[in-house]
């Protein structure tokens, strides 16, 4: 610990990331200063509704943002202390895939339909590790076995459409984990799947994460999935993080009215509920985010200060922060 370089560096440290999209209707500010970090073996869940900027943040981290129209206008993405955003394209390409990889929501469109899954898996070993064709094929079969594709040896030559949704998603996971990356970003990995298959896939992902001690960023809108697997949560709204907390604390007592509204608006499985709480209104238009707190037009707690002063992330307790002027009152409500 005496030497600077021996100090453990956070695996991924996103600092004040900003992303804009230039559209016909004006500049849409999709990500407005996002900060989060992930350690090895840790699962961070990024929770948000559509348009909250959760996927765009992930794309910016991975360097797969469509640009144009997207543009990173500020911030840093430190991967083991090195800024990915200022890195040369070639260095970055070598990190992507080998050191950090991504699992997408829709496996059918993320996989190449005219290439057998075996060839797609093998390709990675050929490109990143310079293996021969034969060796890489053998590795592909091994991987498919590892993610429990039945009769992997016979199916290595099959095409994506010949697999079921759950198997395709497992192949996506195999692909993301093939080179044993340090960080995996899973963007709604189970949204398109049925609950029984979702449980299989999440179990597999958690098991592999433990095995390789990877950092995992799980992007989702499903509060149930988050509660099942995450260590900590970042809740996003209109391109900002409005609350971060360890998973138990957040569900026990949210410190932001938006989080609270989300938790109250989901029906329960274990008892017949009453009227669901509905957050009134709609998320803001990203080309015209209201001044002050972006959630203020929908917030039951909003005061004048919320409409004029943008709340910074206030430290609530260790590892907890909330971007609400009235976080104390919100916290005490429960």
């Amino acid at each position: 610990m005496e030497h600077q370089r021996d100090q453990p560096v956070t695996l991924l440290d996103v600092r004040d990331l900003q992303v804009e999209f230039h559209t016909r209707d004006g500049v849409a500010k999709a990500v407005n200063g996002v900060n989060y970090c992930v350690d090895p073996g840790e699962t961070l869940a990024v929770l948000g509704e559509s348009g909250s900027g959760k996927s765009v943040t992930a794309q910016a981290i991975m360097g797969i943002l469509d640009s144009p129209p997207g543009r990173i206008t500020g911030g840093e993405v430190l991967f083991r202390g090195e800024d990915l955003l200022t890195m040369g394209a070639e260095t970055r390409r070598r990190i992507r895939g080998a050191k950090m990889s991504m699992v997408f929501q829709d496996a059918l469109s993320a996989l190449n339909p005219v290439m057998s899954v075996g060839a797609q898996l093998a390709e990675m070993f050929e490109v990143h590790e310079g293996m021969t064709r034969k060796d890489s094929r053998a590795k592909a079969v091994q991987l498919m076995d590892r993610v429990r594709i039945p009769a992997a040896k016979d199916r290595v030559g099959d095409y994506p459409h010949q697999f079921s949704g759950g198997m395709r998603q497992r192949i996506m996971i195999a692909m993301a984990l093939a080179l044993e990356p340090d960080l995996v970003i899973a963007d709604e990995p189970t949204t398109a799947l049925d609950v029984t298959v979702q449980a299989q896939v999440m179990d597999l992902l958690a098991e592999l994460q433990r095995e390789y001690n990877m950092g995992l960023i799980l992007i989702t809108h499903d509060l149930g999935v988050v509660a099942d697997v995450a260590d900590k949560i970042a809740v996003m709204y209109a391109g900002r993080i409005v609350e971060t907390a360890p998973v138990h604390d957040l569900y026990a007592a949210p410190a932001h009215p938006y989080t609270r509204g989300l938790l109250d608006s989901i029906p329960r499985l274990d008892q017949k509920g009453r009227q669901l709480y509905a957050i009134k209104g709609l998320p803001p238009d990203l080309t015209a985010i209201p001044p002050g707190c972006p959630f203020s037009p929908r917030c039951p707690r909003a005061q004048d200060i919320c409409r004029t002063d943008r709340p910074p992330l206030f430290a609530v307790s260790h590892g907890r922060a909330s971007a609400c002027h009235f976080w104390k009152e919100t916290l005490d409500e429960r």
Partner: peptide, 24 residues
């Protein structure tokens, strides 16, 4: 089916009876 539904309560993570079906 019921046991596979993710419940929005991290405290229930360990206590629940999970049945993970195999296959499709």
């Amino acid at each position: 089916l019921l046991s596979a539904v993710p419940v929005p309560d991290p405290a229930a993570r360990e206590g629940r009876d999970r049945i993970i079906l195999t296959g499709d």
